[in-house]
Design a protein around this nucleic acid. Structure first.
Ligand code: DCP
Ligand code: MG
Ligand code: MG
Length: 886
DNA sequence: ATCCTCCCCTAC
DNA sequence: TAAGGTAGGGGAGGAT
């Protein structure tokens, strides 16, 4: 049945003749392309070559002082251990003399107990990781991502299980830590192979079994398995590193209320002048690379198998061509995906708070509010960086950025850069190679998505404690409506919140306080990092006057350019333009927004809940297909993803939109590795009468749309699938338990409810009573139904249907049927929405084994739900399958 | 007028 | 090597 439908309905594809429009940013705005700096599109790289080349400076000088630095460091380290040992070794035995541990994560025995062990036996214990004071990292079994993260830092330091310490104490002597190294067992070797070179290299030093010779080559790591007072020898130092002097912000000019929060515990060591940066071992990194590839321990799993299948496979490591689980893996690693779907997680985890808060005033007339609203905006400082380095305090003052790659010429993007890095011009969205060009000693750290979730949860738990009107903007950012939350000074509250956040998460947040959301947000920006700012109404004017228009939320690159072309750069200048003029130029709403925002006016209310309007998934990286099978495979996976997300949100959608990026004619290879490059985007939607989250439906519809594009799959560089016109799935599912057709009809229309009752009662009779007279069937619909259904109907009508249809055909041939008929799949010159007679048809099949109603759609259904339902005539055909005409 | 589709723009 | 997603707002222009 299902298979049948799948092959049947595509034929009915082109009832609608909606145009396929092509559009492309790059194509339409060639002039602005060169200056674009947003995160998408190769337009930026075209305009970039010169800027990418700048700053070749001080790459060599960095290595100058290496030897003396290491000598000094070793000396200091030994001194430190001596001190530790002499002061803390109670029994004088000191089996851990010279050992200093950092405990990461949950351990058995606990961190506290381990600390006591260490101190008791002459060892050291530090609360904050620093390569200068730690000889061993102790941790229990960590999830993959944490392990990955840890490796990025441990570089050269052994990561060892707590049992090493316990056993040593039991043996009353220091055992070799080597057998206690933390690894994930057998799988480890294969897992590592899948990691990028970046991480593979980082992990090498604690996985001698994997790659011993890398140590000998001296990239990183310890020599000798149990001589622990050695620190990594060959780490490059940057003696010339300028102490970054990013002290407090000076936002007092706006009368801001500024307060830095300090961490309660001080770093164990304050080393400034020199610093060994593990991740920036540029030269050494590269030289070790071929070696690693040669000796790769467990190559040839999936990829090699696939190599035999696809010829190009080896060239495209993680494209859709080689990785059957590409979609899954891709989303696992995509930062943008992470921040994109974070909201879903938030909704689930904090649903209690959302309901309790009463979405409240949707009123726009906050003018009539007697009390002035108090809005607080809070945003974590360089969130992705802060979280990852939160236990590594010696990185706080160094330029650090989060990225997948640490390669000098990598095209991986910077996700977030900390403030020292920003001083060098490093920005989110940059390619790593450009960031490195700005800042050669930039430390790159990997993503840790689990940790982001964890910290975001902590962040929001704290916010909800202080305020019940919280609007989540993203994983690191929220608005609080404090108007009724407290009688206290909101500045004091903001300070308390920030203190609690930094205490709990070891990451700092900044806050803005003002009368409305716009100003609060602007205040936060001016307070960053680790500060807060209050903008009283009397200061608004001054605050805005010189503010660049681009700083206003809602004004991005495009609007900024348009305004610039009219000599408008600052809010003050924008204020001089009349509202009418702005509306004429930019549209009603946009003009209104510009006019209000540049005056600091914003009437939006803090919304604690927001209705979901669409759910979708797209991939525009690593997408390469050789043939249709490749493509269909991928599309199915994308449909699966969307289907799961719909179910996760408990919604179903009626409008399916497929978006395809196609390589622009003549476009060269993208600058970004496996990127989509210069593309034209095609998008088309199809609206079905019954909301669905069903994989099979999505698959069929999306394929149907794709076919209508008539594109060569070899040119496809990106695919997206989105559902809109969402309805609650729960309403459907509830009724479904009783019977599918009733539930299908149980949409919010009264008429439909009546209708469904009628149907339900007719169903209960369980016979053919409700059968319409043969002559009322529309043959023009029936003849396009699946043959097995036609056959079934024919049976029901005791073989009369065939005769009836034949007669109809005859009649049709002789006369132009005066009856309204449905015109189905012909690509003829039908105008959209102008079907002859306006007939459409829906077949619903309810297959009990799947416990799921499947709606199949033919034709052009009016989009107004009620109108649609009013037209429905439902005819019962059998218990298992239903056909509905309307 | 109002709704719809196909975009573009914006922000994280 | 590398993971360029997601969702909402809104404008233009066509259909009803
Ligand atoms: N182009 C972007 C923008 C943001 N992010 C991610 C990383 C950020 O850490 C996080 C939060 O975005 P913010 O705009 O709040 O930026 P940061 O928190 O990094 O810096 P700031 O201190 O300016 O808030 O989203 C990203 O991956 N790519
Ligand atoms: Mg932030
Ligand atoms: Mg943010």
């Amino acid at each position: 049945m299902l298979q049948f439908h799948a092959s049947f309905f595509p034929d009915l594809a082109q009832v609608r003749t909606a145009r396929v429009t092509m559009s492309s940013l790059e194509g339409r705005h060639p002039s602005s392309a060169a200056t674009i700096s947003s995160s998408l599109g190769d337009s930026r790289k075209r305009g970039r070559p010169d800027s990418a080349r700048r700053n070749p400076r001080k790459r060599n000088s960095s290595f100058a002082d290496f030897g003396s630095y290491m000598a000094e460091k070793n000396r200091k380290l030994r001194d430190q251990f001596e001190t530790d040992a002499s002061t803390s070794s109670a029994d004088g035995r000191g089996i851990f003399r010279g050992i200093s541990i950092f405990v990461d994560g949950f351990t058995i025995p606990s961190s506290q107990e381990l600390k006591e062990f260490m101190l008791k036996h002459g060892g050291g214990f530090v609360n904050y990781f620093s390569r200068h004071t730690v000889t061993h990292i102790i941790c229990g079994n960590l999830p993959d991502s944490k392990m990955k993260n840890l490796r990025a830092f441990s570089r050269g330091l052994p990561v060892v299980r707590p049992a090493w310490l316990v056993d040593s104490i039991a043996a009353n002597k220091l055992l070799s830590w080597f057998p206690y190294q933390l690894s994930d067992g057998v799988n480890e070797r294969c897992k590592q192979q899948k990691l990028s070179t970046f991480f593979t290299q980082k992990s090498i030093s604690n996985s001698k079994n994997v790659e011993t010779s890398a140590d000998q080559q001296g990239t990183v790591g310890l020599e000798g398995s149990s001589s622990n007072d050695e620190v990594p020898k060959n780490i490059i130092s940057y003696a010339q590193l300028q102490a970054s002097t990013d002290e407090g912000q000076d936002s007092e000019e706006f009368g801001c209320y500024e307060s830095e929060i300090d961490f309660d515990a001080k770093s164990v060591e304050a080393n400034d002048a020199v610093y060994a940066i593990s991740c920036s071992v540029l030269g050494a990194f590269d030289s070790s690379k071929p070696h690693i590839h040669n000796t790769s321990c467990c190559g040839n799993t999936k990829e090699e198998i696939l190599d035999t299948k696809g010829a190009k496979a080896s060239n495209m490591p993680h494209s859709t061509l080689t990785d059957p689980k590409f979609v899954e893996n891709y989303f696992k690693n995509s930062r943008l995906h992470f921040i994109g779907i974070w909201r879903n997680r938030y909704r689930q985890h904090f649903s209690d708070f959302l309901c309790g808060a009463k979405s409240s005033n949707a009123n726009i007339d906050s003018l009539s509010d007697r009390k002035k609203t108090i809005i607080v905006h809070i945003d974590m400082d360089c969130f992705f960086v802060s979280v990852v380095i939160r236990n590594f305090r010696d990185l706080f003052n160094k330029p650090v950025a989060v990225s997948h790659s640490d390669s000098l010429n990598g095209t991986a993007e910077i996700s977030s850069a900390n403030y020292p890095a920003r001083d060098y011009g490093v920005k989110a969205g940059m390619f790593v190679r450009d960031a490195k060009a700005c800042c050669p000693h930039l430390v790159i750290v990997p993503y840790n998505f689990e940790a982001y979730e964890e910290v975001a949860d902590q962040f929001y738990s704290i916010l909800h404690k202080y305020c019940n009107k919280v609007q989540a903007i993203s994983c690191d950012e929220a608005f609080l409506d404090m108007t009724e939350c407290s009688r206290d000074d909101p500045r004091k509250l903001a300070l308390m919140i920030r203190e609690e956040i930094s205490k709990k998460t070891r990451c700092t947040a900044s806050a803005g306080i003002a009368d409305n959301m716009l100003l609060a947000r602007l205040a936060t920006r001016s307070a960053k990092p680790n500060g807060q700012c209050f903008i009283p109404s009397e200061k608004v004017r001054d605050f805005l006057n010189d503010l660049p228009v681009k700083a206003l939320p809602g004004i991005g690159h495009s609007l900024d350019e348009k305004l610039k072309s009219r000599q408008i750069q600052s809010c003050g200048q924008l204020q001089k333009i009349s509202k009418e003029e702005l509306q004429n130029e930019f549209g009603k709403m946009t003009g209104d927004m510009l006019w209000s925002y540049c005056r600091g006016i914003d009437n939006r209310a803090v919304k604690t809940v927001q209705e979901t309007k669409s759910v979708g998934a797209e991939v525009n990286w690593g997408v390469r297909f050789n043939d249709n099978t490749d493509f269909e495979n991928f599309l199915v996976n994308l449909c699966k993803e969307v289907s799961l997300r719909l179910q996760g949100c408990r919604v179903q959608g009626r409008t399916v939109t497929l978006k395809v990026k196609k390589r622009r004619k003549g476009a060269e290879e993208p600058a970004k590795f496996l990127g989509c490059g210069d593309c034209e985007t095609m998008s088309r939607s199809m609206t079905i009468p019954v909301a669905t989250d069903d994989l099979i439906s999505l698959r069929r519809i999306s394929k149907q749309i794709f076919v209508s594009f008539h594109i060569d799959v070899k040119e496809v560089r990106g695919v997206g699938l989105k559902l809109s016109r969402l309805e609650s799935a729960d309403l459907h599912r509830k009724g479904f338990e009783e019977n599918a057709i009733k539930s299908w009809l149980a949409s919010p229309s009264e008429k439909v409810m009546k209708q469904s009752n009628k149907i339900a009662s007719s169903l209960k009779k369980g016979n053919n009573e409700g059968l319409p007279p043969l002559c009322s069937l529309d043959v023009e619909v029936v003849k396009y139904l699946p043959p097995e259904i036609i056959s079934e109907i024919n049976d029901i009508y005791m073989g009369e249907l065939h005769h009836f249809m034949e007669a109809h055909e005859d009649e049709n041939r002789s006369i132009k049927s005066c009856k309204r008929t449905i015109s189905l799949p012909e690509q003829g010159p039908l105008k959209k929405g102008k079907l002859p007679g306006g007939y459409s048809a829906v077949a619903i099949s309810s297959i009990s084994t799947q416990r799921k109603a499947q709606a199949l759609y033919i034709g052009d259904v009016p989009n107004k739900c009620n109108e649609l339902n009013a037209k429905i005539q439902c005819r019962y055909l059998s218990f298992e399958r239903y056909v509905i005409f309307f």
